[in-house]
């Protein structure tokens, strides 16, 4: 029973991080139909911001806030420089632009900051444990679950109760109609990038707290997981992205637990095999967007 609870916490905490990541991808996709592969580099940028802030003696909470703001601005900057000129381009053009952006940022980090990982010293308290009977709950998993919940609730409130949020949901349905109504489409797109930056920075903090360092190629694995999660959840659907992230986390932990030791090294093959099966049954993903857009 204790062991089961431990595994459930592991699964929900990993799934929560994936959900934050895939939500960042999905929010941009829902508006302009672009899977932004430079999303991982937004995480890396957030990691470096936290690193430099801590090195400069800034407290961790302040460093996180600063990283969130900085990366939101960076995401809007990327939109302005790389994606806005490509607005009329087709899906392939946008996709390649996002890959290019990702590589440019990686090369920038490698040459400007250095190829070696930089240690991010997290406060000792974060490595701590909460003891519930015989169950040890790590502070970091608990934190990642609570941060995920807070972020999801905040995003939900933003989308449902602010003018910009409602406009964004409308744009996700049909951006041309939003334009016809006299709303500024450019601002909607920029905001979606800013929100994705906020989500990337939040996820980056959780990611870095686990691994203790930041390096130029750090964003690759998370963006890949997020991509799989958004596909599983249904491209363009925000609830789908959260469901996809959670499901991916749960399936990964489950595979690690139930596979016999000799098979565990093929864990990812089993997980992706499950994804393929799921897509055979539900080609649009778990909870597809009503417009059913696919890239």
């Amino acid at each position: 029973m204790d062991l089961l609870l431990q595994h459930v916490i592991n699964a929900v905490s990993l799934g929560g991080t994936y959900a934050l990541l895939s939500l960042g991808l999905a929010i941009v996709f829902s508006i302009i139909g672009l899977i932004n592969f430079a999303h991982g580099e937004l995480m890396t940028a957030a990691g470096y911001t936290i690193f430099f802030m801590l090195a400069a003696g800034v407290s961790l909470p302040l460093a996180i806030v600063f990283a969130i703001v900085a990366v939101a601005i960076l995401a809007m900057g990327i939109e302005r420089v790389a994606f806005r000129p490509m607005r009329k381009a087709d899906m392939t053009g946008l996709l390649i632009t996002s890959f290019a952006m990702s590589m440019i940022l990686q090369a920038f980090f490698q040459n400007a900051i250095g190829a070696r990982p930089r240690a991010v010293a997290m406060p000792e308290a974060l490595s701590g444990v909460v003891n519930l009977g015989s169950v040890h709950l790590g502070i970091i998993p608990l934190m990642s679950i609570s941060i995920t919940v807070v972020a999801l609730v905040a995003l939900n409130l933003f989308l449902k109760h602010t003018v910009m949020g409602i406009t964004m949901r409308a744009a996700a349905e049909d951006i041309d109609v939003v334009r016809l109504l006299g709303l500024k489409a450019g601002r909607v797109v920029a905001t979606s990038f800013a929100v994705s930056g906020v989500l990337a920075a939040t996820a980056a903090f959780l990611w870095v707290a686990q691994r203790g360092s930041v390096d130029p190629l750090m964003g690759f694995v998370p963006v890949l997981k997020a991509f799989v999660a958004t596909i599983v959840g249904g491209l363009g659907s925000l609830t789908g992205a959260v469901a996809g992230g959670m499901l991916l986390g749960i399936v990964e932990v489950l595979a690690q637990v139930v596979l016999p030791p000799s098979m565990v090294e093929f864990r990812d093959a089993f997980v992706l095999g499950f994804v393929i099966l799921l897509l055979l049954v539900r080609p649009q993903g778990l909870l597809p967007a009503p417009t059913g857009r696919r890239s």
Binding site: L3, N10, L14, P141, F220, V253, V257, P261, V264
Partner: peptide, 21 residues
């Protein structure tokens, strides 16, 4: 026991729970 992990997987909860058991 010799068990395996995936590089870059970030979460070792499952392995660790196994070792603890």
């Amino acid at each position: 026991e010799q068990s395996t992990y995936t590089m870059g997987q970030q979460d070792f909860g499952a392995e660790v729970t196994k070792i603890k058991g």
